[in-house]
Amino acid sequence: MSTGNMNLTLKVWRQKNANIKGAFVTYKAEGISPDMSFLEMLDVVNESLIHKGEEPIHFDHDCREGICGMCSLYINGHPHGPKNAITTCQLHMRTFHDGEIIVIEPWRAAAFPVVKDLAVDRSAFDRIQQAGGFVSVNTGVTVDANEIPIPKVIADEAFNSATCIGCGACVAACKNASAMLFVSAKVTQLGMLPQGQPERYSRVQAMVAQMDAEGFGNCTNTGACEAECPKEIKMTNISRMNNDYFSAKLFREEATHDHAGGE
């Protein structure tokens, strides 16, 4: 069991809470092993801070296996760090070199206010999902699962959209802080499947309306979201969402804006 021999300089955004201005603070991370994950490296720094009686660096994290979507660090100009298709918790220190300066910032977006240090409030995402990211079906359906055959390609495509972990890297990467990749992934997943058809057009309107209300920016199709998404969600989702939205708004008589969810 070896501790490592990498020494790094960290420039970390520290901010006590949403109402107090923050600033960068420089820390030394010493004796870092290349096998550590990025968050384990921060654990080591935090342990030494606690020993010195200083407040540890606060950051969101939970599953540490790349699926819960909680970790959210903007590392050296990239959400989730420089490697593709992984979350911060899966980023390992072997990606960096000894002596490197690492700048760590929180996600920056008006819709993601800082909670403390590197943790931000992403409840805007939940509210968008609450607006319509569901199929209105009560518990206790009696239709057998296999009575709804779904072509494998459709199921696979829907799955690709469904893998979104809601981390917000798309917003963090986008120069406009747009949430369209996130919103479109859910719209597309349910819009492609037969189960999602009855509410397809009301859903997209309700979710887009909530997205706008949360203060996210607009998509300019730069593709940064797609490039930084740890689950490699594709931008084609955004086009699909736009298509559904315009049909709903401009051509479909029956689609109303009100997405009651049906009781």
Partner: peptide
């Protein structure tokens, strides 16, 4: 019942080429 419920919600379970689970 669980499988029926989840499929109804739009959970994209793996499928075979015939479209069945």
């Amino acid at each position: 019942n669980i499988i029926d419920q989840c499929v109804a919600q739009g959970v994209p379970f793996a499928r075979e080429y015939g479209g069945l689970l």
